[in-house]
Nucleic acid binder design. Structure first.
Length: 589
DNA sequence: TGAAGGTGCAA
DNA sequence: TATTGCACCTTCA
């Protein structure tokens, strides 16, 4: 059995080595290392449990190629012992998921969320937001630790094994394996020292750690997805695409499309590509080709939509789903400049609205393939007009604030002021103006935004006129944009609603400072909302989509549950931002 | 075969 | 001077 002190409540830094990067791609524990202080000594140890994987390779090469992995009993002993300590990880989100899945052969998954008290990666991100938060990079920066010996020793093995740490023999990695747990413990201790002086950072770290707990639970859960149906609908989409291709008078690739549209048909390019400045065949450009009655344009646009849906959703999601038929995104919590989370592996923060897949007639749209747990329902909660309300507050725009207090319609009123009425199209343009001009955009970008979202083409003079009139109507926004830019320039950061600092890199453009305040403040709020409503019995948060939350609620508690979540969000947001905020809900089905 | 570019999705 | 984020496909070195 392993030699572990028979005590509880020790601060233990823990690190896992694994066979991959995501549980649904088969990642499991291959080794566990720990570091702690006991009786004034720093003790560290590393235990292999599935290292070298002799049974995978199948053949022992020499008398010394023995299986030096620890036993199943020792695995259980270690996990139970960890369950009695106070744990620290450098990215708890990852290790907790791995430990919750357990060993490749033995299982013994254990949820250690409540035992986890600190995350050195999250803390490091809050303390030094512009530096790398990698463990080795941070150690090198703080203490001049050099990892060269380790790199040199492991490189040939990793190269041979496709970067699989778990396939490197234990006699090679073993000596280095406990290093990360040791570094994590030392980093924790140094962070505690720093926070004694910068104690105002602690609440921000605690919020991030709370979020990590919820994000970890969200990843344990995943979200129900109808994998079989996804494949069936995907096949129907493929058949549909083949039919479409028959009607396209050129091989349906971007290069051939470009040739056909702009050389053979001599169409007028609507816009050019970013880097190479070629005539573009993107959706907005093809829309202009359709208006020019260029043959093949309509069908090419349809093809692009269908192909994107197949690759990203119907096939992509089906391939990424876990064995339990649930989709698990890989949440990235730190590192975004916006303070937002991001969704990786499968991007569940960019699910198409049904109107995007209207070209796929008779095929179930991607959102229709998500499934609630039997006895539960899926609901989405969002903050209505969050950016406009928060921006009005920080710009000090009384006109807007009063509208929100009175419950009047912002876009209609802007439309009336700009165009004399709130007819559908005018209101749409006014809405785009309100969305984009609060951040100080110019006529060109405004015009593009209007065209993208409404299909309405404005003449340059018209766009310029609207922008100028809008700025005169709501002068608080141009002013606050200039002010925010100056603050960012002078201090190197702007403050968000909760006091979190959003730093700018030296070379970073500062004109986006006001945008950063609004986006960042909303992100910080939604973190609190998410953490506050997450509960395994009454309302499980499954997704966070920047200003909205997708939540699973028991059928018999839907009425109280949805009301409670909305009231909680509305009240907390109104208090948080000091302007009337409210949340809306709609069922996902 | 990997990087870069283009495209499309979300907020 | 809108901003930010991610995945898939094609092209090209």
């Amino acid at each position: 059995m392993l030699e572990l002190p028979n005590v509880s409540g020790l601060v233990v830094a823990c690190d896992t080595e694994t066979s991959g990067l995501h549980v649904d791609d088969g990642a499991r524990v291959s080794a566990v290392s720990i570091a702690y202080r006991h009786e004034d000594k720093l003790i560290s140890a590393a235990y292999p449990f599935d290292q070298g994987a002799l049974d995978k390779i199948g053949v022992a090469n020499s008398l010394f190629d023995v299986d030096d992995n620890c036993s199943e009993e020792e695995y259980v002993q270690l996990i139970e012992w960890l369950g009695r300590q106070r744990l620290i990880f450098h990215k708890m989100y990852f290790d907790l998921q791995i430990l919750n899945k357990g060993h490749r052969k033995w299982g013994h998954g254990k949820d250690l969320i409540m035992q986890t008290v600190w995350d050195t990666k999250l803390a490091q991100w809050v303390i030094e937001p512009l530096e790398s938060t990698g463990l080795k990079e941070t150690a090198a920066r703080l203490w001049g630790e050099d990892e060269k010996a380790e790199q040199d020793a492991l490189k040939p093995y990793l190269k041979q094994n496709g970067n699989r740490f778990d396939l490197v023999p234990w006699d090679v990695v073993g000596p280095y394996a406990s290093k990360d747990a040791e570094l994590t413990l030392r980093l924790y201790e140094s962070q505690q020292e720093i926070l004694r002086l910068k104690h105002d950072l602690l609440p921000h770290i605690e919020l991030e750690i709370d979020c990590a707990r919820t994000l970890t639970k969200m990843s344990y859960r995943g979200i129900g997805y109808d994998v079989n149906r996804s494949r069936v609908e995907g096949q129907r989409a493929v058949a549909m695409m083949k039919e479409v291709d028959k009607q396209i008078p050129f091989p349906p690739t971007p290069v051939e499309a470009r040739k056909w549209f702009y050389e053979v048909q001599e169409a007028i390019p609507h816009c050019v590509t970013d880097k190479t400045r070629q005539p573009s065949v993107s959706e907005c450009c093809v829309r202009s080709l359709i208006q020019q009655n260029i043959p093949g344009a309509k069908m090419y646009a349809t093809r692009q939509k269908i192909m994107h849906a197949i690759g990203t959703y119907y096939d992509g999601f089906a391939n990424a789903a876990g064995e339990d038929g649930r989709l698990r995104t890989d949440w990235k919590q730190d590192g975004t400049v916006t303070m937002r989370f991001s969704s990786n592996r499968v991007n569940l923060q960019a699910l198409p609205h049904d109107f995007q897949t209207e070209a796929l007639k008779g095929i179930i749209p991607p959102r229709g393939l998500f499934r609630a747990e039997p006895g539960w329902e899926l609901w989405e909660f969002d903050l209505a007009q969050a950016e406009a309300r928060v921006a009005a507050k920080y710009a000090g725009c009384e006109t807007w604030i009063q509208m929100f207090i009175d419950g009047r319609d912002l876009h209609s009123e802007t439309s009336v002021k700009l165009f004399g009425d709130a007819e559908f199209q005018n209101r749409q343009v006014a809405k785009r103006a309100n969305f984009s001009l609060i951040y100080g955009v110019g006529p060109a970008t405004f015009s593009r935004s209007v065209e993208k979202f409404t299909g309405i083409k404005l003449l340059d003079a018209e766009a310029k006129k609207i922008v100028n009139e809008w700025r005169e109507m709501y002068p608080e926004f141009p002013r606050i944009n200039r002010k925010a830019e100056q603050v960012a320039e002078r201090r190197g950061f702007v403050l968000l609603a909760d006091g979190r600092q959003r730093y700018f890199k030296p070379y970073e453009e500062k004109h986006k400072a006001f945008n950063a305040v609004i986006q960042g403040s909303i992100a910080q709020f939604v973190k609190r909302w998410m953490v506050g409503i997450d509960d395994d019995e009454r309302s499980r948060v499954l997704l966070q989509i920047h200003d909205s939350l997708v939540v699973e609620i028991p059928e018999d508690k839907v009425d109280i549950g949805t009301k409670a979540i909305m009231n909680y969000g509305s009240d907390m947001a109104t208090e948080f931002f000091g302007v009337p905020m409210y949340s809306e809900s709609k069922r996902w089905k």
